[in-house]
Design a binder for these strands. Sequence first.
DNA 1: CGTCCACAGGAATGACGGGCGG
DNA 2: CCGCCCGTCATTCCTGTGGACG
Length: 416
Amino acid sequence: MKDTSILDEVFERFCNTVGVFKDREVLRHDYLPEKLPHREEQIRRLGEVIAPVLKGARCSNIFVYGKTGTGKTAVTKYVLNHLEVKAKEIGAPVSFCYVNCRLAGTEYRVLASLCQSINLVVPFTGLSLGEVFDRFKQGLDTAKRILIVALDEVDAIVKARSDILLYELTRINEILTRSKASVIGISNDLRLKEFLDPRVLSSLSEEEIVFRPYNAAELRNILAERAQMAFRDGALTEGALSLCAALAAAEHGDARRALDLLRVAGEVAERKGESTVTEEHVREAERLIEHNRVVDALANLTLHSKLVMLSVYHLVRANGYRAVTGEIYEVYNELCSELAVTPLTQRRVSTLVNELDALGLLNAQVVSMGRYGRTKKIRMEVTRTLIKEAFSNDSRLGRLIDYEPKSLSKDAGSRN
DNA sequence: CGTCCACAGGAATGACGGGCGG
DNA sequence: CCGCCCGTCATTCCTGTGGACG
């Protein structure tokens, strides 16, 4: 079969099937709906707290927390958007700036975003943090406005760097004379409080809003509302909808996850040329999402992280299911010399293992073996077939999958 | 009950590519 | 062009430690 005829068939089939979607976009998690069911209370609270800015007063700083997919970001954006509209309407000098700290990555880039929001151009890099902050303060002061700074996923910055950015931001009003600023800090992690300097914590959490996870019934309502816009009438079975809600409820009540499941289930059904989405499609969507997440994560690792994964892979294959740091480093060294790559130090490999642990690709646990030292026992969190699938495209790594490390030959017995 | 293993993981430092203002 | 600062990745040096062994 020629390539063109393959595509002919694919396109033909796509055009001839009705499809289950009416508007797939509303299922993306960056879509901001008109209504946010079961978050009325939080919307009201947030609205009440920030309302004073409409009358020219600074509003309290707010600390917003709750797990992923509980609607923190949606509610915040929703309220701020409406605030901006209202401010325009009555001519109040109010604006806001929303920054996702994890996406921004560094304090510098967060600050750069803030500058951008007040039409201040700063270079991507090159300036000292203090310099950028000074410019931001000056720029803001001359702008004569009230700025609300929403820092989403602040925990990412605070944990990776420090809380000095937050500290400076919460004290900024002491310097400003013609402008004012308030901070909304959004965190996925309640424990963030423990990382914060007490002074920062007290000024940031003048007000606190908690987002509890959605339960299955609430998720079901949310999904039903979106599904009505997203799917053709009758294209989604009740069972499929409920299953999405139930699966997501079992996993921290994450609405984002529920929406993903629903969208992918729809895509699965469509690809199969079926006109209704069933529970079976949801199950397959669940598998597909997890599969893609892992293969994606694996494929995007740096060479050395991949080599560490491969080392664990070989050890697990040979000795049972847990490997320790020393063994991993030994095999890793061998794989490096096989590729003629200079190996990293054990210290570095240790942090790579921790990163892989955080990504959920490995599971690392510190254990003491008494007289025989203290180490980390490391287990794979992904199946070996997935490793093969993710690495076999790379010709250099593909060779190492079937390679038998010499360091494995002795001491092949498995221990607990 | 102290020792001592085999590391964990913090801190300091450096190399490097990118970019600034002057 | 220079001197300076940035973030990132990595190395070096280091102190800390749970618990089986003696």
